[in-house]
Amino acid sequence: MTDVLLLMAPEDTELPGLDGLPASVRLRCVQDEDALRQALPEAEVLVVTDFRSGLLERCWPAQNRLRWVHATSAGVDALMFPALWDSPVTITNARGLFDRGIAEYVLGAVLMFAKDTLGNLRLQRHRQWQHRDTELIEQRRVLVVGAGSIGGEVATLLRAVGMQVVGLARTARADARFDAVHASAALPEQLALADFVVITAPLTDDTRGLFNDQAFAAMKPGARLINVGRGSIVDTAALLRALERGQLSGAALDVFEQEPLPEDHPLWQQPNVMISAHMAGDFLGWRRALGEQFVTNFLRWQAGEALHNRVERG
């Protein structure tokens, strides 16, 4: 019998798609601190859907039987607390599952800006008929900050509609999904060339606060920012200043330094900003797909095969 523990947020229902687990699995679901403290020392495998409460870090036991922790997200920054990160426990994530949905969100945001959809909706609300010329996106330049799995899917989709897409990664490399991939040190010069800047990078010590006043000042005047990575990569106050002085023509934001975004936050009032509630990759049926992805990986683990989406420390 293998003990699998599912850590869920209080408002969550049980993750669908787990019905494919073998009969030899004892699945337990916990949603509060007392239950987690009681169950965690006996679990061999932990599936985490609750990333925002910090509950796992608070309850991490000095002694446990855990061999594998699976995050039902592409990013694992919420699991980077030292006790887990420094342990021998294998960590996997949901890499790949949300790539297409996020890429489609980015394409939609690019088209929204190019065709002035926000302007159309404002005029419609006031019943104003106002003809304007809009932009073509063909041959416009996109900088994707974070040339990993998600960034590569974004590049594939944007290049398919005729855009020029350059990626940014830790080191320069050849990647057929992009027109070029430059090292992260090239950020200032690449920002100056891009009509659209798309953030798909994970949150790390290197990316936290990466988009500050200096980065926005380096951007091409009139460029647009699309953030589908992590909110803390962008200094929100610096972004507001860039929008207000007209350095940026707009921003599409799916992630924020503080979530939910407070009702009185000035970003809500910006006429050239689109806000969504950390949902860029969430498609109909995504929760079941997460469960099924874990089951597929569990069967590999049970058979002694290499796990998919293993997170490498370092």
Rank of each mutant, 00 (worst) to 15 (best):
R141F: 01
A43R: 10
V273Q: 01
P271C: 09
D264Y: 05
R28Q: 14
L267S: 12
A94G: 01
E292M: 06
F211D: 09
A39V: 10
R173I: 02
I275R: 03
R100D: 15
D34Y: 11
V273R: 01
P271D: 05
P202G: 11
L107N: 05
V76I: 15
F216C: 00
R287Q: 15
T90Y: 03
C59P: 12
A78P: 08
L307F: 07
V4Y: 03
G152P: 12
E135L: 15
T2L: 11
F298I: 08
R159W: 12
F51V: 07
R140C: 07
V181E: 07
L118D: 01
I150D: 11
R287W: 02
M274L: 14
F196H: 05
A183Q: 14
I199G: 09
V144H: 06
Q128D: 01
P61K: 09
P10I: 13
G54A: 06
Q293C: 00
E305L: 10
P22G: 11
L253N: 05
R170Y: 03
C59M: 11
T200V: 06
R127L: 10
D86I: 03
R208W: 01
M274Y: 12
C59Y: 08
V154T: 02
R125S: 14
A172Q: 07
L210C: 02
D254F: 09
V161S: 00
T49L: 13
P41D: 12
L225G: 07
A174Q: 14
T90P: 03
L46D: 11
G246D: 00
A176K: 06
Q164V: 14
G162A: 09
L6A: 08
L248T: 00
P221S: 06
H70I: 02
T200M: 07
V69K: 15
R230I: 07
N93T: 03
